[in-house]
């Protein structure tokens, strides 16, 4: 039986009736067409699906859409404002922190979460902050540089 839900997505209320088994990431991608959030695994390991749920980074593959009812979700599509990239997006671009781009949306939210809880992380703390996100292209090094640069530039937003 479907369940009605309303979630504020990138500042806009979106309502739908969904099967309880629908994952938040499937709701975003398949119901709303917000395909920026990626699915890279099925065991909650890779972090490609990370979004902000009420301002906190979560793996949207490990959250039922019905659990997010009444919450606010920010996806990668909602991070830039008026065409202006966020500090993290700029830093990833500047430091070549992405190659194929598939892990990037999740990686940016992992970095966002790190800077939320620790605005001036050391390289080692950055590496620990990225432990729930997998990248097969960059060897992580330029991602670490990007997070450092974003921190130096004044943060995540």
């Amino acid at each position: 039986m479907k369940v009605p839900i309303t979630i504020s997505i990138n500042g806009r209320a979106r309502s739908a009736e969904v099967e309880p088994r629908l994952l938040l990431v499937q709701f975003l991608r398949d119901v709303l067409g917000l395909t920026g959030t990626k699915i890279g695994c099925d065991t909650s390991q890779c972090g490609a699906c990370m979004v902000l749920l009420d301002g906190i980074a979560v793996k949207s593959c490990t959250c039922l859409a019905v659990q997010a009812d009444g919450c606010a979700v920010t996806t990668i599509e909602g991070l830039a404002s008026n065409g202006q990239l966020s500090a993290l997006q700029e830093a990833f671009w500047e430091k070549h922190g992405l190659q194929c781009g598939f892990c990037t949306p999740g990686m940016i939210f992992a970095a966002y979460e790190l800077l939320r809880t620790n605005p001036n992380p050391s390289p080692e703390q950055i590496r620990h902050g990225l432990e729930g996100n997998m990248c097969r292209c960059t060897g992580y090094q330029n991602i670490v540089r990007a997070v450092q640069a974003a921190a130096a530039a004044g943060g995540r937003a």
């Binding site: 972090g47 906190i56 980074a57 490990t62 992992a110 790190l114 902050g129 432990e131 729930g132 996100n133």
Partner: peptide, 9 residues
Amino acid sequence: VGDPAVRNR
């Protein structure tokens, strides 16, 4: 436990 996002939920 797990990673930061796992610990958040």
